[in-house]
Structures are given as structure tokens and as C-alpha cells.
Amino acid sequence: MLLAGCAGTDADSASSPSGTPAQDVVATPSEEVTPADDASSPVPALDLAEFRSESVQCVVRDEGLECQLQVEPTYTIPDKYLEFGVPCQSVYLTPTATEGELGCAGDVISESVGFTDALPVGTVVTHGGFTCTLLEVGAACANEVGGEVEITADAYRLAR
């Protein structure tokens, strides 16, 4: 016996465009339907303490988050940082701060982060109360109390 319009299990037909009308899901204004197999669904955030892209490396530790540019910045460095003599291409944010800091450390932020796979632009990473989005060149991060930092080759931002 051949049944037209039926294929596979209930799970298969629920996500199949050829499902029978009895299996179709209709959303009403009071409910939200999120298709699990929809290609346009957002990708879940990755939980990583160390991560990088081609242009930035970030590390989350108990004392806070640090993101360091791996490209030469073109923004103007404030005079008060010029005495350090190294490029100021890091931003720091602690878990409870509403404003970050510009950093001028000349060292590597982690010995192991450089060995991690470079993540693509647009990747969202969350760990230890911080959420970061990798940008075309740089990263934008926030903590749970509303503090935000962003660093790109063109600019840095230490608060909202």
C-alpha cells in the first residue's frame, strides 16, 4: 500500500514542507514557534574562555575580559598612554565595571589562544558573564551589568 504525502517519522514530517495539513503548526499571537532546522535560525553562542579571529584575540579570566588587536591600530592613542612606548591595542573589562580600560601591554595575552582555531566574523562567544561578537576587524564585548568595550583597527570604545 502506498501513502502519498507521508514520509518518515513524525519528526521528519513536522519539519518537511510536504507534511499533511494535520501536522502543520500554526502560530497564534500568544505562542512563538521556532523551527529547529531553519537555516535562518541564529547560531547559538559558543562557550569559550579563549578565542580569536584573524584580527583579535580575547581571553576571559575570573578578574575580567581582555581583547587584543592583532592588527596595527589607526586610532589616536591618548597622550597619557604614549609614555608606555608600546601600541595600545587591548581593551579590558571586569565583571562588575560599567566602563572598560584601554591597555598598552606589549605581551601576549595568552600562550594558548594563538593555537585555537580562528572563528569567523559574526561569531558570538559567551563565558563567565561576558558576551562578545567578533567583528570584521576586532570585537565588541559586554558584561552582565551593562559594561561594554569594543576595539577595531579604527577605534576603541570603553563604555556605551
Rank of each mutant, 00 (worst) to 15 (best):
P35H: 15
L135S: 05
H127V: 02
V60I: 14
G129M: 08
E111A: 11
G106M: 14
P44C: 03
C67E: 10
T94H: 06
F115D: 15
N143G: 03
D47P: 09
E150A: 06
V60S: 13
V145I: 09
S112A: 12
P73R: 15
T116H: 07
I151M: 02
L134V: 02
V56N: 00
P42T: 11
E83P: 05
K80M: 11
S16M: 02
T116F: 02
E72D: 15
E72N: 09
G128Y: 01
G138V: 03
L69W: 07
L46N: 14
E83C: 10
S15A: 04
A139C: 08
L119E: 09
E72P: 08
L65G: 01
G103Y: 09
G146L: 05
T123A: 09
V137A: 12
P120H: 01
C88I: 08
T131V: 04
Q68G: 07
T131G: 07
S30Q: 14
P21L: 14
P42M: 05
V124Y: 12
S90H: 08
G146P: 13
A14P: 05
P21G: 06
E72S: 11
S30Y: 03
L82M: 11
F51T: 07
S30A: 08
E144T: 12
P78V: 11
L119S: 03
E50G: 02
S90N: 06
C141W: 09
E66D: 01
C141H: 01
A118W: 07
I109F: 03
A27V: 02
V121K: 03
S53T: 11
A105M: 12
A39P: 04
E31L: 10
L119M: 04
V149K: 04
L82H: 01
Q70R: 07
K80Q: 12
Y81M: 13
F130A: 04
G103I: 04
T126F: 11
V124R: 15
P73F: 04
C88P: 03
T28P: 02
P21E: 08
P78E: 10
E150C: 06
Q70M: 06
Q23R: 13
L69N: 06
G106E: 00
R52C: 06
T94G: 02
S90I: 02
L46D: 13
E72W: 07
P95A: 08
P120Y: 06
S30E: 13
R52D: 03
A27Y: 08
Q68S: 11
G103H: 07
A39Y: 12
T126L: 08
S112P: 06
S16K: 04
L69Q: 11
E32G: 08
E32V: 09
A22K: 15
E148D: 11
E50F: 00
T123C: 01
A36E: 14
T74F: 07
V91T: 00
S55E: 06
D117H: 02
L69I: 13
N143F: 01
V26W: 05
L119T: 03
A105W: 03
D79L: 14
P17W: 13
G85A: 00
